[in-house]
Design a protein around this nucleic acid. Sequence first.
DNA 1: TTGAAAGCGCTAACAA
DNA 2: TTGTTAGCGCTTTCAA
Lengths: 327, 327
Amino acid sequence: MSTALASIVIRDAPGASAESRQRILQAADELGYRPDTRARMLRSRHSRLLGVVFGVQHAFHGDLVSGLYQAADRIGYDLALSAVTPERDEQQAVSSLLQDRCEALILLGPHTSTPYLAELAARLPVVVVARAVRHRAVDVVRTADDEGLHQAVDHLVALGHRDIAHIDGGRAPGAADRRRGYREALRRHGLDARTRIVPGGLTEDDGAAAAQAIVGISAGQRPTAVSVFNDRCATGVLDVLRRAGLAVPADISVVGYDNSRLARLSHIDLTTIAQDTQQITALAITRAVARLDGAAVAHRELVIPPTLVVRSTTAAPPADGAGQRPR
Amino acid sequence: MSTALASIVIRDAPGASAESRQRILQAADELGYRPDTRARMLRSRHSRLLGVVFGVQHAFHGDLVSGLYQAADRIGYDLALSAVTPERDEQQAVSSLLQDRCEALILLGPHTSTPYLAELAARLPVVVVARAVRHRAVDVVRTADDEGLHQAVDHLVALGHRDIAHIDGGRAPGAADRRRGYREALRRHGLDARTRIVPGGLTEDDGAAAAQAIVGISAGQRPTAVSVFNDRCATGVLDVLRRAGLAVPADISVVGYDNSRLARLSHIDLTTIAQDTQQITALAITRAVARLDGAAVAHRELVIPPTLVVRSTTAAPPADGAGQRPR
DNA sequence: TTGAAAGCGCTAACAA
DNA sequence: TTGTTAGCGCTTTCAA
């Protein structure tokens, strides 16, 4: 039995008889043989390894990573994870993946500059997830965030709300699109004049601060509904509103964004906009592999529609119209 | 210039003149040379790579991963991350790391059986973090969880509480020790008779359910303080208590565990027991490397004392002694 | 269908 | 201090 023949069998490649196959497989099993990934990669210039950069603190990235593992597994690719932490920035995370000889990079909600991403994309295929990037060399898979806010606003308007505020995400990936979606939706409903954007952010604390501002508004002037940048921020909002004695949704409705595990918790039970993580992750993997295979790609940017998930933080505005005219 | 000389310079190994050093470094820079980690590992039988298995949904694991990166970086080791997700179990996570030819494994709060861990430890050094494992081949770095609950109970007793319940973590890593610590501390204060353990778990939902049970107790019988398995579970508890109209800490005090980012949020501001993640991660890395170097190890298990962090969810019990006698 | 031989990019041992 | 040589464990020709 030559090593070459063994190689064929182990890789499940064509060109070995059924008999040899069985014998080699059995021997391998007895010896506890494990192919050495490094040697294999060294020789075959083809690692079947996709690098993923994610934020270790982001619950939503966790959901994406789960989906990526599944999608990669289905087509026989492996994932190399590299975390962004408070002390480890995206460039460090990327550079460790490059050393691992990944074939392509998948970046979750990266904050790095477009020029840097472009430079990276010149070296290997780069797929950015959950953030818009305007550069012809960078592939993007993201949710139609403007559409998400249309749905949120439409839902609230259908419930009877006229005074809807938006707590935004500042410079976070996706924030600009969501802000724009909010503005457009209000305009479509002829509510432009009531546009109110409250500075927020990604975290619970950002939401808490924004909610303080809203609580500070006199009852007659206060919005009857708030759409919030993301679920995490929305939980901060919920907490502050309730502690200030405002009932949700009786006094004020709240809509989140992401449909993260947080939103699904029974005691939070947040109405939110769900990003289709299964599809997003599947497309990200497919796209990365398509680039590796040199396949032609029709659309550089894949924009996935989100869906509204109604839970218990939205309802009709107070019957006395507390939010619309002074009592 | 031979490749061997170049190798010496690139690795920053002794044995090259300052002049060659500079010339080679400059040439490498111009060519955009990056050493191929795989080839390097293949040759040197020594990957300087430590495998880490973590739960992608665990905020606390995120903190640990951050610390591990820092500690590994300091001694020139790299980390290979492998996530446990709802669809990817620990064994899968481990086996992908083995293929990557990691030199040692660091497992964060693993749920796998001791026999499996032992089998693993027979192949390469295994350091388990944040869970007790009784096996001579497996190293452990963990917090003195019983001590943590002593501190929580001591703090509450010092504030004047006599009726203190514990919402436990079931079969989660560390839960048994915390339960025991709670029991011991009550006994030490002569409060054995008031021992009350409420079934809980790791998640917000588990906490919410446990809190419902507490809310259901008639006011006179209700504990005036609760220590909770972890911060995540405690946030569920807080939410349900407050919604039921119980003020925290005025009516009831709550202590969490972990000092995770969650506890530090301004609107939660949870009194909690801090695990020393910096020290735990540093020791985990040190220990793994010590095993690789074949160093003698005095104590297989490193148990780190936690510290109490007092925030705003604990205070003296209600003046009317509502929790101690029927009104 | 099988085996022999070459070599992926690097490092280690040795010789010059 | 530098260069030569061999080989890590695998895959890939190519010839038998």
